[in-house]
Design a protein around this nucleic acid. Sequence first.
DNA 1: TTAATTAATCGTAATATTGCAATATAATTA
DNA 2: TAATTATATTGCAATATTACGATTAATTAA
Lengths: 109, 109
Amino acid sequence: MGITKTEIFTDEQNKLAVQLKAIAHPARIAILQLIIEAKACICGDLSSELGLAQPTVSQHLKELKNAGLIQGTIEGVSVCYCIEPEAWQNLNDELNKLFSSYKDFNNCC
Amino acid sequence: MGITKTEIFTDEQNKLAVQLKAIAHPARIAILQLIIEAKACICGDLSSELGLAQPTVSQHLKELKNAGLIQGTIEGVSVCYCIEPEAWQNLNDELNKLFSSYKDFNNCC
DNA sequence: TTAATTAATCGTAATATTGCAATATAATTA
DNA sequence: TAATTATATTGCAATATTACGATTAATTAA
């Protein structure tokens, strides 16, 4: 069907899946890295930096924004994008929870 | 096009995206949690546990296996699935790298 | 107001994903 | 060998994603 049966999973599982899906694309990983490396908000011109057309970049930014991971602020003619600190921290926490719950066990196949 | 332009991104970005995509689904998150909580490999019968049909679960397991995140061992009639420790650790490291590189900066929009 | 600049939206084509019924394969047991 | 059990594969329908050209806002500058 192409549609995920979200109703059979917990809110936590669904939310984590949505946020992971948002960052599960090389272009969006690259965008996040650019913002982080800049140590500030980033204003415009990502399309030449990324090698993707302007509408494509705009769409990727929109998806990151929809997932709440970045925020955009109108700055004159251009738009500046930042990490959304709370959501970023929250995703970090959820992932830490998932990864730290695993201890290498050797009573295994 | 529906096809990601992987050639314009780094191998690291592409690999991270592939592994994140593998875990970016609530059913696959649930599967990983079940394996981790069991503190051992898990053998069969996930379809009733998850509420998805057997072929659907099999497909999700395949995707996790393709991403290298779990491994399956034939155990008599059934198949046992484990976390693949190296890949799991590697993904953990890559995510830590991404998240730790961000420090909340307030010289921002 | 008009022109220029920048980002978002629309529309569309190509491909991928999700889910499952039906079927096939593999291993054990009688 | 035949029956049983457990998992994988196939095929398909519905929906989602990726990418971009064309166009449309929105803001500033002339």
